[in-house]
Amino acid sequence: MICREQDEAIVMVKQHEHGRLAGELAKWFREEQVPESLRRDEVLWSIANHDRGWIDLDETPFWNDAENVPYSFIDFPVVPKLTFYRRGLNEIEAVSSYGALLCSLHFERLIEVSGEECPELDQYQKDEAERRARIHRELEQRSVPIGEDELYYDARLLQFCDDLSLYLALNRPGSPKAEEHPWWQDGFSGSEDFKFTSGRVITAEWQDESTLLLEPFPFTHEVEAVFMLRRVSRSEIAAKGIARAYRETPEEECRIMVSGRPEEASADEQGNAEHGAGGQ
């Protein structure tokens, strides 16, 4: 579960809902970074399903009594988390071995960032290293092999779309930069590797409560990000417990327009016009 506190409520977004949004964002990524057609569907499906291991787990939230909040994907106990990571990767591999490779690499990065340590984690990492080695061997047998450059950029696409989707869930729409979640105050790590950024990190800033500005802009056009959430009242949690309070809280739709800065859009339009004139 993805959680953030707001006033007297806890805003909660299911992990798979966040993953679905990441997949939608990936569909509109700038064309020079979109995977070749032979693997495009595979990559987009894998991005949308990278957190499918959490589907059953997020049906009923768990309460973290030490922190007086629900457990989130950040602080969920590591051993059961690894169990659901593994389950999700197995389900992804049953559909796409390349997708399982991408998602396994993605989770490895998240584990390294978290700094978690335990014997079960050591075994998980060993098992996943074996999975990735096996899939690498399988990919070499494809009629059109997928090289390391393709894998690198597909992994960056997953990382960025995952980060942006998380940004939308973890930040209050319209919040000032000073209140932004600390993970992204310096921009989206890894985005400087995309060709169109020319080495710049993509940064985000709220224009208002319904519009998020990205610079440099990574999509082919403005994108409306739509996802479902629940605002679970703390008073309801105190009265009924987290499971019942969550279940009885209706879902609501959140809509955010993801756009570029006006001056950047004008420059893109001018560039497109010049390109068109040159081809006449």
Rank of each mutant, 00 (worst) to 15 (best):
S198N: 07
A26I: 07
M1S: 10
R30M: 14
L57K: 07
S143A: 14
C103E: 00
F227S: 00
D75V: 00
E5W: 11
L166T: 05
E209T: 11
L168F: 02
S210E: 11
I256V: 14
Q33S: 13
E42Y: 11
I111D: 07
C254T: 11
W28H: 14
Q270C: 09
Q207W: 04
L157K: 08
R86W: 04
A273H: 13
D56A: 13
C118R: 10
S233T: 00
S114V: 01
N68G: 12
D51S: 09
P80E: 02
I202W: 10
L101V: 09
E130M: 13
C161I: 03
R172P: 10
H181K: 11
K14M: 11
L44E: 01
E31V: 14
P119Q: 13
E108Y: 06
Y246H: 06
A22F: 03
G88Y: 01
S46K: 02
R39L: 14
A26W: 06
P218E: 15
G19R: 06
Q207N: 04
G187L: 06
I2V: 13
S191P: 10
F188S: 05
H221N: 07
P70V: 03
L102D: 05
Q33T: 12
V78G: 04
V113A: 07
N272S: 09
Y71S: 06
M257S: 15
C3S: 12
E32K: 13
F62S: 12
E138G: 11
E32F: 13
Y124A: 07
M1L: 11
L101Y: 14
D127E: 15
R87L: 08
R137D: 12
P80H: 05
H275C: 07
L139W: 12
R261K: 13
E180P: 01
E116K: 05
W206R: 03
Q6W: 14
D193G: 08
E5M: 08
E222V: 08
A178F: 05
